[in-house]
Design a protein around this nucleic acid. Structure first.
Lengths: 334, 334
DNA sequence: TTGTATGCGTTATCAT
DNA sequence: ATGATAACGCATACAA
């Protein structure tokens, strides 16, 4: 890598002159400025980022800590973060907690040494279940800005970007009741222990309460693969009065459609299905599932902007932004 | 952030003594070592990473450039990369090219200033289609190690981790012909312009040739959403002799199953379906699709290890590692 | 055993 | 208009 020193030596001038020339200082003569720039271009000189970071005491880098990236929600959020960061000339260092507390702790700790100017984080499942979040508060106390999105800890004061989990599910349930005239709506959940899961269940419960219907909740308890199918199939077989399904994740709705079809049910005549979903969710189901579409990309973008703002001006008041979801009905139920 | 200087001042000793004490130098007395470490712990001292990087002329960071992360293949690769990097005490800076040449160029350029010690890259669709890869060669010439995975440029000499695209599709096709006695196998492709797409098509073609069957290829030409369904539905409707489908991506196989069912076909009796897939692919289809399961996680891990090796010892010879895929049959066809 | 000096690459300040 | 020097925080060769 070419350095200022090397350029200076080749040109027989001082390092500081080279530096100033490259930064278009008014002090430098047209002639030498051109001479310097030509050589710099020729040798493909680039200011060493590390040195600049040391000098400026800023890394222009954001630490992004995600529970996982194979969940399409987080993948899409990451996409949004990356775009917004790039647009603001920030890099992102990505760490995956794998839903574990210890990895989350470790990542926060390792990066809070000047590597990043701030953090964007969605809390790991384990941290949230055990309600252990001291490590995050410690970071905030050390004056490194933290932004939490989606999985949020209420007790912590920092910027937050959240989804309208309660409201969107309330509206979707209401839609099933009022517009589609459904009476026995089953909620299928595989994330009941997460804050977002609880909010979604609350939205459903409130809607049923408001319309004086009885709630039916099928908790899958973190089931994997074939177990998911079996449990849903068994439930639908034993409870034939179910006329609508509301899945609060992005998998079980599609599985429910497949199981209902296997049981000979016609969709959406016998059964309406609403789930959470992303870009390809509707493409993968047939008949089309209706989805609550979270604006994951936007969540990433807004999180990044908000964090960068608070990095640049630490005196800003913290705020919580709610990104509304969109209910995308399948063609057949419109 | 606490610095060595601050510790030194508080302890009334020199900076270098503090530094040595913290690094367990034999030169330092037990007594002061303990004194120093106690204060360091108390003040939560962490060596400034940026300064260390400048001093050591190494960032312990890998630049990861992916076309996208919403594709589950790349998401899972990223997961593997992150894990392996963490295990080796490396950070990763992630950039997304969004399949475009200019963003790929930009990311490489911005990070090749000391920010990273090496790159892991899967070439963007546009770069591959236009066959423009000078920017990558330039990085290699500048002595920054580069590892390419999956989407690989043959002309470039560097470490590579690839999938057995040709072989796995050949074997899957052979399985359909020999074990499942299929005669009219349709290949469905939405990625025919990528190197991997071409390899997969070649594997299919070779198998058909070996068994003297006629190839049928449905190229979707980057169709999105509902178009995918329409094209597949139309083809299956017009070509009733098709008795097997081989999808070379992770979406169209599931769509094909749904369309076939809509046409009243029984799976797998009338139609066998094989696609590419990942963790949840089989769960989302009913009846279950058979999948060629790429070891995406392993690809990420091996790429990272190989890159770190070449970062540590630049004299190592480059190699190309092939990570074999696994054909996972659906229960029904076993 | 401890301390001083130097340098990593850059930029800002202060001479010349 | 150009150059010398110091500083960011750390680590190390070299003195003491």
């Amino acid at each position: 890598m070419t350095t200022l020193k090397e350029l200076a030596a080749l040109l027989n001038i001082s390092v500081s002159t080279v530096s100033k020339a490259l930064n278009d200082s008014h002090e430098i003569s047209e002639k030498t400025r051109i001479r310097v720039k030509e050589l710099a271009t020729k040798l493909n000189y680039k200011p060493n980022r590390i040195a600049q970071q040391l000098k400026n005491n800023t890394s222009k880098t954001i630490g992004v800590i995600l529970p996982t990236v194979t969940n399409p929600f987080f993948a899409e959020v990451l996409h949004g973060i990356e775009m917004a960061a790039t647009n603001n000339n920030y890099d992102i260092i990505v760490c995956l907690s794998n839903e574990t507390l210890h990895k989350e702790k470790r990542s926060l700790s390792l990066l809070s040494n000047g590597s990043v100017d701030g953090f964007i984080i969605a809390v790991a499942r384990e941290s949230q279940v055990k309600n252990q979040t001291d490590h995050i508060e410690a970071i905030i106390k050390s004056k490194i800005p933290v932004l939490m999105f989606d999985r949020v800890v209420n007790g912590i004061e920092c910027n937050k970007v959240i989804v309208d989990d309660f409201q969107s599910v309330y509206e979707a349930t209401k839609h099933l009741i009022v517009n589609e005239k459904r009476k026995n709506i089953l909620l299928v959940s595989n994330i009941e222990e997460l804050s977002v899961g609880q909010l979604r269940i609350s939205g459903y419960s409130k809607a049923l309460e408001d319309y004086k219907l009885t709630p039916n909740i099928l908790k899958l308890d973190n089931a994997v693969d074939i177990e998911v199918e079996k449990k849903i199939y068994a439930y639908l077989k034993d409870n034939t009065s179910i006329d609508a399904i509301l899945s609060i994740d992005h998998i079980t709705g599609i599985v429910a459609i497949n199981m209902a079809k296997r049981l000979g049910k016609e969709i959406p005549k016998d059964l309406s299905v609403v789930g959470f979903g992303y870009d390809h969710t509707q493409l993968l189901s047939s008949p089309k599932i209706s989805i609550i579409h979270q604006k994951a990309h936007k969540i990433g973008e807004m999180s990044t902007k908000l964090l960068i703002d608070s990095v640049k001006d630490q005196t800003l008041k913290t705020q919580t932004i709610v990104v509304p979801s969109e209910l995308k009905l399948s063609e057949s139920t419109k």
